[in-house]
């Protein structure tokens, strides 16, 4: 079992919900990413998604598009992100999920990536534009190296597709809270509850919900429904606005702590 599987077992045992933090690796520079991930962990992130920048991020809104552009301009490549993961892994056991688009992965080579990612201490991978129909070879390669493959389910997914997503996913299933691209929103989508219910009826895998979740109140609300909550653009935006600022890590840590406080407290277990 990967660190992702172990995390969700521990959350269940402790009757807690998880906080998943996304950042674009290499933004503002590859050298800065390990200390930003450490800040996320100190703030209470349970799992970190390392976004690998891609030139044409069709599923991302402006905040993550710009972060990807900054990261690419700073020389970030998939290979460099694996080095970043190794560096994080020297000091931390936090589960790490690679989060990217298919083309950089195809170019790197599926088998080679699986081996190198496992070697770097990555626990799993999510490819935004790899539908389950096209994912056979990718899933085979990742599983062969002991890595989780996380797939997305969306409000538009039919019951048949939800079963397929569950079948191809390991670690957890990532539920997209709304139709649309990544990005912070003022209000939560009404699609979350029916989506969680529908997905719950076809799988026992842990369910994480992301897209448009940016505030402690959102985290609180979604934490009641799902096993974990993903915050991405709000974190990336904070990094983008404070990239030159030496106190960025401190700000990041306290922002994640606020988000984490939104999560429902574990029920008190009487002995």
């Amino acid at each position: 079992m990967t660190r992702i599987g172990q995390l969700f077992e521990r959350l269940k045992r402790e009757d807690r919900k998880g906080l998943i933090a996304y950042l674009t690796a290499g933004d503002p520079t590859p050298d800065r990413t390990p200390s930003l991930v450490e800040a996320l962990e100190r703030g209470g992130a349970d799992l970190v998604e390392l976004g690998v920048p891609f030139s044409d991020p069709i599923a991302d809104g402006p905040v993550i598009q710009h972060a990807g552009h900054r990261a690419l301009s700073a020389g970030t490549t998939l290979r460099r992100v694996l080095e970043i993961a190794s560096e994080i892994r020297r000091r931390s056991r936090i589960p790490l999920l690679l989060f990217t688009y298919l083309n950089p992965v195809l170019r790197y080579g599926l088998e080679r990536l699986a081996a190198d990612a496992a070697g770097a201490g990555i626990d799993g991978c999510l490819l935004t534009d790899a539908s389950v129909e096209e994912a056979g070879a990718y899933v085979h390669a990742m599983r062969g190296a002991g890595l989780d493959t996380v797939f997305l389910a969306a409000p538009t997914s039919t019951p048949r597709r939800m079963r397929l997503v569950a079948e191809y996913s390991t670690g957890f299933v990532y539920l997209v809270s709304r139709t649309g691209v990544t990005g912070a929103r003022e209000t939560l989508s009404g699609s979350i509850e029916p989506l969680v219910t529908a997905m719950r009826s076809v799988t026992d895998l842990p369910l994480a919900v992301g897209f448009g979740i940016s505030k402690p109140e959102h985290v609180a609300e979604v934490g009641k429904l799902a096993d974990a909550v993903v915050v991405g653009s709000a974190i990336v935006s904070l990094i983008g606005q404070n990239a030159e600022n030496a106190s960025l890590e401190i700000q990041l840590e306290s922002f994640v702590r606020e988000l984490k406080h939104g999560l429902p407290a574990p029920r008190v277990v009487r002995s």
Binding site: D129, S131, E134, L152, T158, R161, V176
Partner: peptide, 15 residues
């Protein structure tokens, strides 16, 4: 060819 898109678009493409 194929269908390499975010999951949100899979059902609409089937439709």
């Amino acid at each position: 060819g194929g269908r390499y898109v975010p999951e949100v678009l899979m059902a609409p493409l089937e439709e």
